[in-house]
């Protein structure tokens, strides 16, 4: 109970988003119509993914400075949560694309960049599972994790902006342009980003605690 205020905040924000996200007014736009409300659910997945993957890199760097199994577990579980959010983001984006652009997948730089970045992170999981030695696994995957983040972020946020793209927030224009998001939508969008990001951290924390417990129990059995 000591430092759980942010979990209460997660609950409040997500419940608020699910109510206000459907009820508050949104701009009437052609093609998008009512699907503009997907912004409160699809985009926060990517925000949450970015923040949790950054946290994973933070733990990986800390692991390389002071190698402890706990830091490796935290980095791994954070990365796994980030990968989960990324795949949910891809799936929700694909559904949205079908009903606005007419295709499940378009060869758009933003979409392909995101897909390649997810494959890079998929390789992280494969790499981890290919080691039998725990210290070697922790060290090599920490290094790979740092490089994966450095490669994935330009694929998400920089390269799509250098070319034309259907996707908002690409093709030179930032997604936060004043004509993209009106003040009514900000009332839900920002809480949604914070809420879903906090949920990602909560899930990662729970998963890490289970793994840490497993490690402790295993150590006790050996002792």
């Amino acid at each position: 109970m000591k430092q759980n205020w942010w979990k209460a905040l997660t609950v409040v924000l997500l419940l608020y988003v699910s109510v206000a996200g459907l009820l508050l007014p949104v701009p009437r736009l052609a093609i998008l119509n009512e699907t503009i409300r997907n912004l409160y659910f699809h985009v926060p997945m990517w925000f949450g993914m970015t923040f949790i993957l950054a946290a994973s890199v933070y733990y990986s760097v800390r692991y390389l400075r002071t190698p402890t199994p706990a830091l490796d577990i935290r980095a791994h579980e954070a990365a796994r949560t980030g990968i989960l959010m990324g795949f949910v983001g891809l799936a929700t984006g694909s559904i949205w694309a079908k009903y606005t652009w007419g295709e499940w997948w378009t060869n758009d730089p933003k979409l392909n960049g995101a897909a390649i970045a997810m494959l890079i992170y998929g390789a992280y999981l494969v790499l981890r599972s290919s080691f039998t030695d725990e210290q070697q696994r922790a060290r090599v995957s920490a290094i790979y994790n740092i490089f994966a983040f450095a490669t994935a972020m330009p694929l998400f946020y920089i390269l799509p902006r250098l070319t034309d793209s259907l996707h908002p927030g690409a093709g030179g224009n930032p997604a936060f342009a004043k004509y993209d998001l009106d003040s009514n939508m900000r009332l839900v969008f920002y809480p949604a980003v914070i809420g879903w990001t906090l949920l990602a951290f909560w899930l990662a924390q729970l998963a890490s605690r289970v793994s840490l417990l497993k490690l402790k129990v295993y150590e006790k059995q050996l002792a």
Partner: peptide, 23 residues
């Protein structure tokens, strides 16, 4: 629709909280 989504989400969050406490 809002009521159904809220109930589903509340249920999932309640499960998460109880899991947290068990841990």
């Amino acid at each position: 629709v809002v009521a159904v989504i809220t109930v589903v989400l509340a249920g999932l969050l309640f499960f998460l909280i109880s899991l947290d406490r068990k841990l």
